[in-house]
Each structure stands twice: as structure tokens, then as C-alpha cells.
């Protein structure tokens, strides 16, 4: 095994995903511990140009037509062959639609340990955030290559960006035939009636709102504030609001002046889409809700006891 830290660079439709930069920043922390280098691994086709902003000591690039867009089988085979050849100290993947499909399968295929949902490296230890952000878990790197999936929260993307283009070394992908998974096409999301990532004030509702009918209460409040109503994932999965109103990992990233979180716990997948808001006010009955760790103001209260007096007072000052 060598001391280097490898990072699977994620890209989609010709753009490097933000998680790639976050991983490079995390990898730098780990590499300082192992005295190794940070190496970006790019799988693609005619994709060299994607490397210019990556803060890596060098890039290993595998170019193959079957790697043009992400598919699990082709990625797994290529990364497996790279790990077997180079045996890095750790290999970082995004805990994302791309990285998670690769890391776990390779853990089983190559019998390598896997640490998931790592948010921070602290003194060479991997700190994972589990249970919706309510529990932290600390693990060590193993004696063999440790596979790690990374979630946002601990590092800023800028820390993994560089002005200087890294050197590219090429790597021959293994035979990529008999693939069991193929991409047929991308389907772009339907544009919503509003683009919540452009709104200045958002009233965001979570599972604490309990029923579809109660969304009206949030809408009334939003009207007073000149705000738009958006939501956490469960509200959209229930079909109560369209997907264009979803904030978080699988939805939109928003950065409003004011984000009012009503009955939202603050799971990492939600927080990654709204943590950069200028001001966050959270209303939640649970004193241990992780949303209070990132909010500017917190209200530990039952939303349904608060909403009527709040609407009445707003009515009065109008």
C-alpha cells in the first residue's frame, strides 16, 4: 500500500460536480497525515479539460468511450483495476448517486473496508455523520485501502480548487464489455413555476407540517413575507409540492436572505442545499434537532401553537 489519497472526480453532462472539490479538500487533510499525495481520478471520454481547476498533485485519467457518462458497471471495473494496481491508502467517493454506487460494490468485490457519510477529517480520523445528523462516528484508516464516502458540510468547495492545472497521467481502462448497465438518456427536470434558487425569502416546510391541508398555513405566512414556499424531500415525495420546490441534495441549492425552516429536522441531505442561507430561522419541537446547529435563530416550539398568533400579529401590523 502507498500513502496517497485518491479521489474519484465526479462530473455530469460536462461539468465537475461540487462534491469533487470538497473531496479534494478532505483528501488534502488526510494526505498530510499519511505524508502522501492527493490524486484525482477522472473517468471520461475527451474530458481532459475538466481537470484544470482541480487542486490535486496530479490526475490519473482513464479515457474510454464507455466512460463518457457515468454508468455503475464501467466505473466499478475501472476503479477496481486502478485500486488493485496502485493500492492507495484511501479512496474517496462522493456519497452521491455516482460515488455511492461505486464505493459499496467495490468494498464487497475487493474485500476492502468502507466508511460512509464522512463529513470531516480530524487528526487523521474519519468523522461520519449518521442518524440524520444526530450522531457522529469516528473511524480510523485501515491497514488496507480504505474506501470512504464523503458528504458536504466540513469543507468548502474553494478549498479544493486551484488556479494551476494539475499534471495528467493516463491510465488504461480494463476491458469494458459485457456491461450490465447502460445509460439510455438524460431527462431534464420540468421547469417549475418559480426558481427557488433565485428567491430572496423562503418559507420551507418539512414533515412537521403533518398534512397537505396545513401547507395553507405556510402559504399565508409566506404571503406576508413576500416569500415562496419550498420544502424538504418527504413533502415532495408525498406529492404535496412539485419537485421544483425541493431543497437539498436531490433538489435545489438555495442561498436566500432569509430561510424559515418549519418542522424540518436538518438532515445532512437537506442542509447541504440551504446551509449557505444568509439567515436561517428554525421552528422545531425537538431541542436536539440538528437544524438548530446551523440556524441563526431557533424556536423550540410547536408550529401549530405558534402559527395563529404569528399570523394574527402580522395581520395587525399590515
Amino acid at each position: 500500500m502507498n500513502e496517497d489519497i485518491y479521489v474519484l472526480i465526479e462530473h455530469l453532462q460536462g461539468e465537475v460536480a461540487e462534491i469533487s472539490y470538497i473531496m479534494l479538500a478532505a483528501a488534502r487533510d488526510l494526505a498530510q497525515r499519511t505524508s502522501g499525495e492527493v490524486i484525482g481520478v477522472l473517468l471520461g471520454h475527451d474530458a481532459q479539460d475538466l481537470t484544470s481547476t482541480l487542486a490535486a498533485d496530479h490526475i490519473i485519467y482513464a479515457d474510454h468511450a464507455a466512460l463518457a457518462e457515468f454508468t455503475a458497471d464501467a466505473y466499478q471495473k475501472t476503479v477496481a483495476s486502478l485500486i488493485q494496481e496502485n493500492e492507495p491508502s484511501a479512496f474517496l467517493f462522493g456519497n452521491t448517486s455516482i460515488g455511492a454506487d461505486v464505493a459499496s460494490v467495490l468494498s464487497a468485490r475487493l474485500s476492502l473496508p468502507l466508511v460512509s457519510s464522512c463529513v470531516q477529517i480530524s487528526n487523521g480520523k474519519l468523522i461520519s455523520q449518521i442518524c440524520g445528523g444526530k450522531i457522529m462516528a469516528e473511524s480510523d484508516l485501515a491497514e488496507t485501502t480504505t474506501l470512504v464516502t464523503i458528504i458536504p458540510g466540513g469543507y468548502k468547495a474553494e478549498e479544493g480548487q486551484s488556479e494551476k492545472s494539475p499534471e495528467i497521467k493516463s491510465f488504461n481502462a480494463p476491458a469494458l464489455d459485457d456491461l450490465r448497465v447502460t445509460l439510455k438518456k438524460y431527462v431534464e427536470p420540468e421547469a417549475g413555476d418559480v426558481n427557488i434558487s433565485k428567491e430572496a425569502i423562503l418559507v420551507s416546510i418539512g414533515r412537521g407540517i403533518q398534512t397537505e391541508d396545513n401547507i395553507e398555513l405556510a402559504e399565508e405566512l409566506a404571503e406576508f413575507l413576500g416569500a415562496t414556499v419550498c420544502a424538504s424531500r418527504p413533502i415532495v415525495d408525498q406529492g404535496w409540492l412539485p419537485i421544483s420546490r425541493m431543497v437539498g441534495k436531490s433538489g435545489q441549492s438555495v442561498k436566500p436572505k432569509l430561510y424559515l425552516a418549519l418542522g424540518i429536522s436538518g438532515a445532512p441531505e437537506h442542509v447541504e442545499g440551504m446551509a449557505e442561507s444568509e439567515m436561517i430561522i428554525a421552528v422545531n419541537m425537538d431541542p436536539n434537532a440538528p437544524i438548530f446547529d446551523i440556524a441563526t435563530y431557533g424556536v423550540e416550539f410547536d408550529f401549530f401553537d405558534l402559527i395563529d398568533p404569528l399570523l394574527e400579529q402580522l395581520e395587525e401590523i399590515e
Binding site: 468494498s107 464487497a108 474485500s111 476492502l112 473496508p113 468502507l114 466508511v115 480520523k125 461520519s128 455523520q129 445528523g133 444526530k134 450522531i135 457522529m136 462516528a137 469516528e138 473511524s139 480510523d140 485501515a142 436561517i280 428554525a282 436536539n288 440538528p290 438548530f292 446547529d293 446551523i294 440556524a295 441563526t296 435563530y297 431557533g298 424556536v299 423550540e300
Partner: peptide
Amino acid sequence: FSGGISAKRMYLPEAAERAEMI
């Protein structure tokens, strides 16, 4: 259990800065 890890330590998050409670 091979391939699985077990955490060395688990703890509740210690936020650097918590919300100002109203």
C-alpha cells in the same frame, strides 16, 4: 462481519455555534 467497520467512538454533535434561541 468482514469488510464492515465499527466506529472507534460515537458521540453527539458538538456544534461550534448553535442558534440563538427565542
